[in-house]
Amino acid sequence: MKGLSLDVEKCSGCRACELACSMKHTGEYNPLNSRIHISIFHEKAFAIPVVCFQCNEPWCEKICPSGAIKTKTDEVKGIKVVEIAEDKCVGCKMCMLACPFGNMRFDGRHAVKCDLCEGDPECMRFCAKGALQFKEAEASVGRKWKSIAEKILASHYA
């Protein structure tokens, strides 16, 4: 199953992903409507993106009293998405309380969250630095091993 992978080493904090997401889902450029969010730490020259992790055991799904949140797997597109059925959502906002990461938002009528754009994430398309990638979660593990190994190597042969 593919998902959005976030590489904090590469994020420059431009927030193009927020703009792209808000346009795709709400028809206007407004970072507040985005389902992905970048926290920028100017003094550390660092920026950290956060977006729904499509958890295996979603707390939002567990707590939803109206059964509006369900995990759906699309074998063809190779994605697993924690989805909100808008017609079932009663707007109680329990899911917002339950999500530890702030990835559940409320648009005034019902809860909204990242839906992976049906397997073609718009945010990733505008991530110039490649901090956002859409791939198998396991695929980044190998690269991380190598990256850590290279750092250790560099510290020994400086």
Binding site: S12, C14, R15, A16, L19, A128, K129
Partner: peptide
């Protein structure tokens, strides 16, 4: 060599 970006800038 990693830059910091202004709003909506792919260059950074």
């Amino acid at each position: 060599k990693m830059g910091v970006a202004c709003f909506s800038c792919p260059v950074a």
